[in-house]
Structures are given as structure tokens and as C-alpha cells.
Amino acid sequence: MSDVLKALEGAAPDTRRPLGEILDAVRFNEAGLIPAIAQQHDSGEVLMMAWMNRETLMETLRTGRVCYWSRSRGKPWRKGESSGQQQHLRAASLDCDGDTLLLQVDQTGPACHTGRRSCFYVTLDADEARVTSEPMIDPQTLYGDKTPH
């Protein structure tokens, strides 16, 4: 863990540090990415997990519109650019280890490419897996023939 993050462990509420100093301490993986969990700001519902790099995190913080890094496309992915189902940032937090982001967002419609509100719609238990929700919108309506994964 970086000295910067270690110092924040004992910091008083409302302690402030320059953003660049904190981003330099973030533990991006070997591909330069960090997992970002999107949570609906008012309900607490966990919507999805995607990846961000420093560039997409900075764009998100600057514009308020959530931008991830698409590993499959190898480029920035502005949530909703093809489906219209955007995420608008309400707050962003870094975990204590500096290796995961939590984004409080205002999600327009479904967050999942399956047309469901949340990507977490398969519940697992000791004996089976169960689908827990229906699509809000047919993926064909959102994406036509180009459904992302």
C-alpha cells in the first residue's frame, strides 16, 4: 500500500488531498485498469462492475457522465453510447486499499446489456442458480443486432 493511502487511514473527516496525488497512489492492475462498481445512488442497488483506467476515471470526474474502459473494444466506453441507457455520476469513492472504485450513479433504465436493471440477476446457492429478474427492455430494442458483452 502506498504511503499516501496509509496516511489517510488515520486522517480526520474532511481531510483533503490533491486528486493527482491520490490517483498516483491508485493500484491499477498490470493492464492499467481498476474495477469500478456502479451502484444506484438513491436505492443502493448494485448495477454492474466494469473497468476504468486513469483516463476514463478522469473523464468521468470531469464530465459527470460515466466512462469505462472496454477491454473487448480496447477503447473508452461511455455508458449508454449505443443503448441510450446512461449513467450520471453522483459520487466516486476509492476503497481503503486503493484498488477498487465505487461509483454512486443515476442510471437511466437498464444497466445490463441483457436489458435488465442490474447485471447481477443470477442468484447462486448450494444446489442451483436462479434468474431473479426479467429484462426491462428487449436487448434487440436497445442494440439491434450488435448486443455488447
Rank of each mutant, 00 (worst) to 15 (best):
V66K: 01
L8S: 03
T63W: 09
M52L: 07
Q85F: 00
T15A: 12
L89K: 07
G64Q: 00
M52W: 08
T15I: 04
R65S: 08
R78Y: 14
R65T: 12
Y68V: 06
L57C: 07
D24E: 12
V66H: 01
N29F: 11
W51G: 03
G64N: 04
L61R: 02
R71A: 08
R27W: 05
E9H: 14
M52F: 04
A36S: 03
S72V: 13
C67G: 00
W77Q: 11
S83W: 04
L23E: 07
E81W: 10
L57V: 09
W51A: 04
L23R: 10
A31P: 05
P35V: 04
A38K: 00
M49V: 15
L19W: 03
A36Q: 07
R17F: 02
Q86Y: 13
R73L: 14
S83N: 01
E81I: 14
E21D: 11
L57H: 07
G64W: 08
G84L: 05
T60R: 02
M58S: 15
G32F: 03
P76Y: 04
M52A: 10
S82H: 12
M49R: 11
R16F: 07
D24W: 05
T63E: 03
R71G: 08
L23P: 09
W77I: 12
A12V: 14
A31E: 14
P13G: 10
P13L: 12
P76M: 12
A11K: 00
V46E: 10
E30S: 15
R17Y: 08
G32S: 10
D42R: 15
M49A: 15
E45G: 14
R62H: 05
W51L: 05
G20T: 05
V26C: 09
G84M: 09
Y68T: 05
S70N: 11
K75I: 13
Q40D: 15
M58R: 15
G64V: 03
Q40F: 02
L61Q: 03
G64S: 08
A36R: 02
S70F: 10
N53E: 06
R27K: 15
E45I: 15
V46W: 03
I22T: 10
T60M: 05
T60S: 04
A11W: 05
W77A: 01
P13R: 06
E59W: 00
L89Q: 09
D42C: 12
I34D: 00
E55D: 14
